[in-house]
Simulated assay, not measured.
Amino acid sequence: MTNLFLLIICLSLGVLLQRTKGFPKDAYLGLNAVIINICLPALTLLYTSEISFKPNQLLVILTPYVLFISSFIFFKIVAKSLRFDRSTTGALTITAGISSISFVGFPIFELLYGKAGVQMGILMSQAGSFVVCGTLGIMTASYYSSSEPSVKSIAKSIFTFPPFVAFCVAVCLNILDFHFPSSVSDILQKLGSPFTILALLSVGLQINLSQGNLVQKPFLLGLFFKLLVAPLIIFVLYLILLQQNFFVHENAWIGQMCVVGAALGSMNTASIIAINHQLNPPLASLMIGISIPLSLITVLFWHYLLIFF
């Protein structure tokens, strides 16, 4: 509940600051610069270097990858038929394709599945959604932000993006089994700790809750995929097609947890990346501001559906 209250407070403050006389209209750009250049690289170095993998955790880790690839294919097809521009398609692909596992998911996993749910959630977040956001998310943002994408321009955008550079360094440290001294870990933790508040304030500063925005076809389609199609894909794939091969009866809850994770609202980091690449910033902000509160309802729907499955 604390995370939910923090979400509501920060987004509301951002919306109120938009209407505060004398407050810079482009303040979110400064917040995004701090997030991209300081907070995210610090958190990436801290967490990615400590990830440990086990074979029986494979499907938990793969869930965010399946979702993002599904999102890319879905919006690639839909954008062509509905004639969405590249900016809109990129924003939808990134925000609808990545769930807010750590911020929204952890308390929900703990409530539904206990300590074991949190442990699996950490793996899904750090080895899954966080890596997806820092690799596939950046690649997709670079691809859609260029009017004439080329391998050179995309590669330059990716390899000059601070969180991705930090990710590459962290992977090397992980392979070498290098662990930061506690003092360094503490510094990285403190550098990264403002991330959640800054990211939510930045999103709030760009939310436009006018009726025209809320009924726009791209936004409604993004919510449709994020809250309904994404969990349905994991439900069919994990609990119908693969259950007998991967989930014995006592571990069936892991597959259910993956469905719940897929039903969560959009990851705030995904929105920041989309905005940083000028991919329809109003739409990217709205996806975070609306999908997360709504997902608290859809998660309950999926949870109770799974109980009777």
Rank of each mutant, 00 (worst) to 15 (best):
T298E: 07
L227Y: 00
S87P: 02
Y65H: 10
S271C: 14
A116D: 15
G30W: 07
L223T: 00
I233T: 07
I77L: 15
K217E: 02
L221M: 14
V259Q: 04
V78M: 12
G90F: 05
V104F: 10
G265H: 02
A263S: 14
F178H: 05
I187A: 12
I9T: 14
S182T: 11
L16C: 09
P41M: 07
E250C: 06
L92V: 09
I187Q: 11
I197G: 04
M120K: 12
I307F: 00
S147K: 15
S129M: 09
S129Y: 09
C258P: 04
L58H: 09
I307V: 03
F53Q: 05
A262E: 01
W253H: 12
N37E: 01
F159I: 08
N251K: 12
I158H: 04
L191N: 01
V203L: 06
F246Q: 04
F247D: 12
N174E: 08
N3Y: 10
L241C: 12
T48N: 06
C39T: 10
T48F: 08
C168N: 04
L40I: 11
L228S: 01
T269N: 15
Y304G: 02
A274N: 02
I108N: 06
S266T: 12
S157D: 15
L7T: 07
C39G: 01
L17N: 10
T20Q: 13
I158G: 05
V184F: 11
F109H: 04
H179I: 03
S210Q: 09
P194H: 10
F164Q: 05
T63E: 13
I108E: 06
P163L: 09
L300Q: 15
Q278V: 09
F72Y: 15
T89H: 08
L7P: 00
W302G: 01
I240Q: 15
P41C: 02
S147T: 11
Y144T: 01
S291G: 03
Y304D: 02
G121V: 10
G212S: 11
T140M: 13
P162R: 10
V151R: 12
D177Q: 14
V15P: 00
L46H: 00
I73E: 07
L40C: 03
Q211H: 12
D26E: 15
G30N: 13
P149V: 01
L45C: 00
L29E: 14
K80W: 11
H179P: 02
S193E: 14
I69V: 14
A252H: 13
P162I: 09
I297Y: 08
I35V: 11
F225P: 00
L59T: 11
F224M: 11
E50N: 07
K21T: 15
S52D: 11
G204V: 09
Q216G: 13
C258H: 00
A116F: 07
A230F: 08
L200V: 06
E110Y: 07
G289R: 04
H179M: 02
